[in-house]
Write a protein that binds this DNA or RNA. Structure first.
Lengths: 205, 205
DNA sequence: CAAAAATCTAAACAATGTTTATTATATAAA
DNA sequence: TTTATATAATAAACATTGTTTAGATTTTTG
């Protein structure tokens, strides 16, 4: 192994070590509580060392976001090859989306809610492509539904955004604790029924 | 005027002065950029003085959130007395909700998205009642729609949450810059069409 | 083995939210 | 009016934060 490739590998390993530690702390204590000093302590390095591998804190969370998108992508890759009918596929996708958001709420927050690691993202953003890829998948499944005439939608683009909005709305109100505003306390059940209701709404009689 | 009431009024005035300054900075530069020192400088006081009127920074944003809910409430009070048909009322409400979110995105973020001023809110929360009040209004209008049979929904509670989710989803994806993930760049138009699509979906027949 | 490059660290910096001790100001009592 | 007493505002400090700098340590190269 040449020295320069070993060096590159070392850098990759370090970046990953740092990212793992950052993730551990983030999933346990949230963004604000995850300080560079705590990350450094966890991996037995000096805080300054981290700056040899990441430009700054935001950059770390940018990488964490990327990782989240990756895992998110893998979750839905299944629907790319399924032989299910479009409508059934769409329903399952929606359910899976909500489940994923609830079970990985920090990741979900990172990907679809937080302002934090977004500032840099205004520039060229290779990673939104993963998000875009999943969005294309939704459009694909929806297009199949339209073709099947199993759905009350005519425009794929408009329909896809509407569907995304609906499920994103449910997930985000849930995980950001805004369902408090609703008197009914059985939030999980309400969420499930609301999705069912929405799904039925899509049905063509 | 008794001395104690004057004192109380002075406290109220100070709280308001601080809140105004905090709001000005927040609407201009966002949460992180709004520091206690900047607030203090803006109103020509020492940072420590602020602590005589608010427990901490979160408390200030809690108050700002309360103010946002108040203005939000006033926006929708109209629908409480309108003689419009339920369906039309519902449609206008939805449009107004989206418009409000876009035109007051910092307020919207404060009320329905941000984690920040929420920690304290875990305790007794007199202010969620304002949010709850607006939610009840949605339920009222929706109930009228159900009675009119102008809508494909049977359960008010489930339907209300579904509708809220849909519009919240649209607004929040828009203002949190997540529509980037969509290749189509005409976001405003897409938003409008998606709402229309959703509205039509609600229609009976 | 010495020179050079790479890696890591200790220390410091500027800025933050917050607390403490002290001063100035307004009110009350004498 | 003058003195005592709450009240209000401040200056200074504290603990933490993200980040930078200059130097030491280790690793690679000739």
């Amino acid at each position: 192994m040449s020295v320069s490739t070993r060096r590159l590998r070392h850098i990759e390993e370090m970046k990953e070590t740092i990212l793992d530690a950052a993730g551990t702390l983030f999933y346990k204590n949230g963004y604000e509580e995850t300080t560079l000093r705590k990350i450094a302590t966890l991996i037995d390095y000096n805080p300054a060392t981290i700056y040899n591998y990441y430009k700054n804190k935001e950059d770390i969370f940018f990488a964490l976001q990327e990782r989240a998108f990756q895992s998110f992508y893998e979750e839905f890759d299944f629907y790319r090859t399924t032989k299910m009918k479009g409508k059934k596929s769409l329903r399952k996708m929606g359910k899976a989306y909500i489940r994923y958001g609830i079970d990985h709420k920090e990741d979900y927050e990172l990907m679809f809610i937080m302002r934090e690691p977004m500032n840099r993202a205004k520039a060229i953003d290779p990673k939104w492509k993963i998000g875009a890829k999943n969005y294309e998948l939704l459009k694909l499944v929806l297009a199949q539904c339209i073709e099947e005439k199993s759905v009350r939608i005519t425009d794929v683009n408009v329909g896809a955004f509407m569907i995304w909005s609906a499920v994103h709305g449910m997930v985000s109100l849930y995980i950001m604790d805004r369902m408090k505003m609703i008197n009914d306390t059985k939030h999980d059940k309400l969420l499930e029924l609301a999705f069912q209701q929405f799904d039925e709404l899509l049905n063509r009689i």
